[in-house]
Simulated scan of single mutants.
Amino acid sequence: MGLITGLLGLPLAPVRGTVKVAEVVLEQAEREFYDPDVIRRQLQEVDDALADGRISKEEAERLEDELVQRLMEGRRLRDEREGR
Score class of each variant (00 low, 15 high):
V68K: 09
R76Y: 07
V46T: 15
E66N: 14
M72Q: 11
V68Y: 14
E45H: 01
Q42M: 14
I55T: 03
D47A: 15
A60M: 04
D79L: 11
E58W: 02
K57E: 14
Q69Y: 12
E73Q: 11
A49T: 12
L71N: 04
I55R: 03
A51R: 15
V46R: 08
E61I: 07
E73H: 04
D48C: 00
E59G: 09
L67R: 05
V46Q: 07
R54N: 12
R40L: 13
A51S: 08
L43E: 06
D52H: 04
E73N: 08
L50N: 13
D79Y: 05
K57F: 11
S56V: 02
R54E: 15
L63Q: 12
Q69E: 06
D48V: 02
R41M: 08
Q69R: 12
I55D: 02
L43W: 01
D48K: 10
V46D: 07
G53F: 03
Q44S: 03
L71H: 13
E64A: 07
G53M: 12
R62Y: 06
A60S: 08
E59W: 09
R54Y: 07
L67A: 02
E61L: 14
E73V: 08
R78Y: 04
E66F: 08
Q44N: 12
E45N: 03
L67H: 08
Q69M: 05
L67D: 04
A51T: 06
L63G: 01
L50R: 15
E45K: 00
L77C: 05
R70I: 00
E61M: 13
